[in-house]
Nucleic acid binder design. Structure first.
Lengths: 336, 336
DNA sequence: TCACTCCTTGGAAACGTTTCCTTAAAAAAA
DNA sequence: TTTTTTTAAGGAAACGTTTCCAAGGAGTGA
């Protein structure tokens, strides 16, 4: 029913192979026949079938993108970066939300395997041992974004979380703050959790400030946990003057909580966030943050993947630069 | 190199068709042979090839999702809704950003055509005549989300923008506000622009309030245009006491501007937004808004598409309910 | 025992390409 | 002119499935 290469061949009075050749710009076809074929294609409104092509050439020009949750503010920019590059190279992306659930990750992987995705981009802050094992045996090139594995068995693009947290804390110290609380991520999170806590501790230590484990609070990066941890901060007798939050969303939660309880930001609390999401920028006061180059992380990951697919070799672990963006949520301690 | 159905057949000592039958749970295969085949599959670690299957059955189980920009806060939730339903029915989604550019829309459509997407979900607030024409001749089922065409030639899922704007304005009026400005969308936008302006006007009119075209400001739904339009509001001698914004992001921009200039929200200005994005919820003060059921719009659109693909008939134009969410950015006029 | 059904099964054909092998024709060389 | 080389073109085979048709065998009823 739909018009195929065969119909075109017949119409143009040439062979099958010839049509295929003009379709793929093979050199050895005379100008004359090329024209005939092109005319036939136009006339019949022929449309190539990428599925049939894929079956033969064993490449689908599709990339699987596994992500915890596209509706979580951190991810869309990454995906945009991925798609832009993919598009440039004529690849498509298949988007899969996993919610970090083992079951969904497994299903997603199976789907991608069956649909013969040429490669996979895995975006997350954690990667489980099981998934790593699955990844290793699936035999599809994979690049990790915003996470990496300790053994460096996978390609990855990340930022230096430890140093970023260090810089953020250092920034607060530079402003004169001596008692700095941290609203951290998850204790067991090897990317957004631990390294950021370590960076915070190192900055304190290096500046000769006392580390008080009681003012490190653990959250899940979301608004509510920022808000609730701030509640705890407000109950402290010896309140900190500054807060480093491991996510912008928690920072905003903390700021909201403070303001709702009659405190001022940055007058009573200087707050610095992490990630660089829109919310931090548009909040009032705008939240100082260390921005992860999300778009670039996606773009870079996709570029690496394409290179891998083309057989070029690429650096195994890429670290992109973060950026400390000064806004209005932090001020010099004591100044009014 | 990779193991196929043929290898399985050989190993199990059965015919090709038989393997295919157990793979597809056809009834007519004895328990005994089914077992043999299953064993062979396990032993060889056989993995079906969806590409080959698609070629034969003429269905890829892939849905194209065309969206202006996934990194714009309005869209991710919609996509999440889509993907959840898709996933449930074993479909995959191919995500394409179009930036509302004709060229990219065209390319995306061609890609989807070649890759034989079973259906398309088009998300936007506008759809151009040209694209409509392309859609009509492409012969792939299409559902529009968050937009519709005047002629009702396409399936669509939207909300009643006029009524939503009406309710929002009415809400402000009920609070006692008499002079209500609007920060509107684009004058030529047939979905998020015009109807919302009309709803605003109707509410005013119906309540006997004077319509002042000078306090309708036009923006592009983004923060900056909210901020800048608010600047104009602040210059007015006869300032409004309330503002209805056609997007949350503009509402937040307006609120930021007001607060930065020493005004208070909601004391000096009651502000109501539109969309129900996270930013409005987490802003301080939290912004009252009329929430579009974005997740549900995506989910519903996908459900409709699946039904269409299964040959069931479905309602042509579906309107989902919006919800006015009261938060802290609006208060009774005059009250302190 | 024979004729009929019904249930399983095997395998060829088809889906729409690309690629490789041939061959015909044209061009170049002798 | 004849031989050799080059170029253009045709078409079969293959990619990995599904589906359809034919057929063997077992069961059933008379």
């Amino acid at each position: 029913m739909s018009v195929t290469i065969k119909d075109v061949a017949k119409k143009a009075g040439v062979g099958l192979g010839t049509v295929s050749r003009v379709l793929n710009n093979h050199p050895s076809v005379s100008e004359e026949t090329r024209k005939k074929v092109l005319d036939a294609i136009k006339e019949l409104d022929y449309n190539p079938n990428a599925i049939a092509r894929s079956l033969k050439v064993k490449s689908t020009k599709s990339i699987g993108v596994m992500i915890p949750d596209i509706s979580s503010a951190f991810y869309p920019d990454i995906v945009r970066g991925i798609e832009d590059i993919a598009n440039e190279y004529k690849y498509n992306i298949i988007l899969l939300n996993t919610d970090l659930k083992r079951e969904k990750e497994k299903e997603a992987l199976i789907m991608l395997k069956e649909k013969k995705a040429d490669g996979i981009l895995f975006i997350s802050n954690t990667i489980s041992e099981k998934l790593k094992r699955d990844f290793k045996k699936v035999n599809i090139p994979i690049v990790l974004i915003a996470t990496k594995d300790d053994e460096s068995e996978f390609y990855s693009v990340t930022i230096d979380n430890e140093r970023a947290a260090y810089e953020a804390t250092k920034y607060l110290i530079k402003l004169g703050h001596k008692r700095i609380a941290m609203i951290a991520g998850k204790k067991e999170d090897p990317n957004a959790g631990i390294p950021r806590i370590n960076g915070y501790k190192r900055a304190l230590e290096e500046s000769g400030l006392k580390l008080d484990e009681n003012i490190i609070f653990y959250g899940d990066y979301k608004f509510k946990s920022g808000y609730q941890n701030m509640l705890k901060v407000l109950k402290l007798k010896d309140k900190p003057t500054a807060i480093f939050s491991a996510s912008d969303t928690m920072a905003v939660g903390a700021a909201s909580c403070a303001m709702q309880h009659g405190f001022k930001v940055p007058d009573d609390f200087s707050i610095i966030g992490f990630d660089g999401v829109e919310l931090a920028e548009y909040f009032y006061p705008p939240i100082t943050t260390v921005k992860q180059p999300r778009y670039e992380m996606g773009a870079k990951g996709m570029e690496m993947l394409i290179k891998i697919l083309q057989g070029e070799d690429v650096e195994r672990e890429v670290q992109l630069d973060f950026e400390l963006i000064e806004r209005s949520s932090c001020k010099v301690k004591g100044e009014s």
